[in-house]
Design a protein around this nucleic acid. Structure first.
Length: 516
RNA sequence: GCCCCGUUCGUCUAGUCUGGUCUAGGACGCAAGAUUUUCAUUCUUGAAAUCAGGGGUUCAAAUCCCCUACGGGGUACCA
């Protein structure tokens, strides 16, 4: 079949977009682009009670940030407009069509009645289901006369329209990821297709829209697999089997620890975002962190998500979006759920952070410095970035690895002091300081030469006086950084310059001479 | 409860369709060594899965079949 590939991502605007939803969208996008097809954004807002303001905008902004582009849909337009289900009014006609064909029926049972029934069954340790076994005893157009039904409809009595599953029929469907799946219709309940509020449920709206929008493949989360027989039955009931899309049900994203599907609350509890962007709940004021605000690069998020449940079959792990499009295939999606791994997510970000140019990082870092009240230059910060970026996973790691280029240490790491600043180190450091002052004068205005000469001097000095290299060097480091870490000493001296170098060493002697 | 889906190193996974080349490969993490005067990086090496358990089929099973266990999902006038 040479049907044009058309897939859709169809979220409900009930809150921020979950990272699992992002992955579903990504797989749809990759699949569409791989086959030169269309990717559509449809908003499924048929549940008015769960509608959350701002959610739709959030979803659109998320994909913009991630670099996932839609060809049609809400915010873009297209020849199947509108793409917001609340603006589509054709669903009732289709539900009625099903009633005419004998595939659906009116039901007048109130939610309270059904609730009570469920409770009743529960006390008997049974499960109530509105299905082929119970519908004959309930209040619907199967048990009522045509006149009574007409009367009730005329009186404006609330009703729903339910699908009428046949008794004991095996419903077969093919899932592109799971293969053949079979379910017996007697076990399935007569799902509501059209609600008493005049809006369709997911099942009806989804099938009607997928058909009308000529969707070729439905790629969605595994939570939809149990209702897929209904959807397949719907296509058949409408006589649309020829144009029925192929189904692919994706494995779920699981919590990193323990069990269950990854949920909204897990993220901030476990210290990682579950949402692409930061979200502020307007009602509760609660804030959920986002990947963007946490410093993740969109390419890293995309790459990580792509490999969480799919693999290329090669040992390559780093992929650009175009490379992903090139190698993506539904066949290589795994069948089982995947636990989200924060550590690996950081590793991915590290990889992409390293690919950023020094200038790109420096530009953003200068902003952070400004917020700390530090004014630096692009030239200087670019040098700093080149020295420390490989130690960073995120932009936010920059400060912790480079603060000493911008401010002198106030405190000295006690452990390092204890370990290194012993014996006659105060005296040694004083002698070193004196010599460094001479070197500074000799290399006035040339920090590179100063750093170079100082390093040379230190090595000679240590050799001549038969001192412990680690001890002396680390005391100098302690004076300059305040801790036992940091980049090459000569690079530090070169960047902070002779004046700052000398004053830091001088201060360390004053502060630490009484410590020993 | 019932229905559906799944189960390979701690985690993500390759291998399963088309049994033998799998003494099960890679990545993250972990450990050790090297490099670095320090920390980090980088490099090298290593530990780590009796392929959930049991039973078949077969000359041969991680790979095919059955059962059990465990995990996940569904079971709304939510999506």
């Amino acid at each position: 079949m040479d049907r044009r590939i058309r897939v859709r991502f169809a979220p409900s605007p009930t809150g921020p977009l979950h990272i699992g939803g992002v992955r579903t969208a990504l797989y749809n996008y990759l699949f569409a682009k791989k086959h030169g097809g269309d990717f559509i954004l449809r908003i499924e807002d048929t549940d008015r009670t769960r509608f959350v303001e701002g959610a739709e905008e959030y979803i659109i902004e998320s994909f913009k940030w991630l670099g996932i582009k839609f060809d049609e849909g809400v915010g873009i337009g297209g020849r199947y407009e509108p793409y917001r289900q609340s603006e589509r009014t054709m669903y009732k006609d289709y539900a009625l069509q099903l009633i005419d064909k004998g595939w659906a029926y009116y039901a007048f049972d109130t939610p309270e009645e059904l609730d009570n029934l469920r409770k009743e069954y529960e006390t008997l340790k049974k499960n109530f289901q509105y299905d082929c076994n119970t519908r004959d005893n309930l209040r619907n157009s199967i048990t009522m006369s045509a006149e009574e039904v007409d009367e009730r409809l005329k009186n404006g009595e609330p009703y729903v329209i339910r699908f009428k599953f046949p008794k004991n029929a095996d419903i077969h469907l093919t899932d592109l990821i799971r293969g053949e799946v079979k379910m017996n219709s007697s076990l399935l309940d007569d799902k509501v297709l059209f609600k008493s509020d005049g809006l369709p449920t997911y099942h009806l709206a989804n099938v009607v829209d997928d058909y009308l929008m000529d969707i070729s493949h439905v790629i969605r989360g595994e939570e939809w697999l149990p209702s897929c027989p209904l959807h397949v039955s719907l296509y058949r009931a409408f006589g649309w089997e020829e144009r029925m899309p192929q189904f692919a049900h994706l494995p779920l994203l699981l919590k990193p620890e323990g069990n269950g599907k990854l949920s909204k609350r897990d993220g901030d509890r476990l210290g990682f975002p579950v949402f692409p962007l930061l979200w502020r709940d307007k009602k509760t004021g609660e804030i959920s962190s986002g990947y963007r605000e946490s410093g993740y690069l969109p390419q890293a998020v995309v790459n990580m998500l792509a490999l969480l449940g799919w693999n290329p079959g090669t040992e390559q792990e780093l992929f650009s979006m175009n490379e992903l499009i090139d190698v993506f295939s539904l066949e290589r999606i795994s069948k089982h759920g995947a636990k989200f791994d924060l550590v690996k997510a950081k590793w991915f970000n590290h990889q992409y952070f390293q690919q950023l140019s020094n200038e790109e990082i420096a530009t953003d870092y200068l902003e952070i410095l400004k917020q700390k009240g530090i004014n630096s230059t692009m030239e200087y910060t670019k040098e700093v970035v080149s020295l420390v970026k490989e130690r960073c996973d995120f932009l936010s790691d920059m400060w912790g690895n480079s603060y000493y280029f911008y401010q002198s240490p106030e405190n000295y790491d006690e452990k390092v002091v204890k370990k290194r600043w012993k014996d006659n180190m105060t005296e040694v450091m004083s002698q070193i300081l004196e010599q460094m002052q001479n070197i500074a004068i000799a290399n006035e205005g040339n920090n590179t030469a100063f750093a170079h000469s100082t390093e040379e001097f230190l090595l000679n000095y240590i050799g001549e006086n038969q001192l412990n290299m680690g001890q002396v060097m680390n005391c100098v480091r302690l004076a300059l950084v305040g801790e036992g870490k940091g980049v090459n000493l000569a690079d530090i001296m070169r960047l902070i310059g002779s004046k700052t170098t000398l004053s830091r060493i001088e201060r360390s002697i004053t502060v630490l001479e009484n410590e020993v």
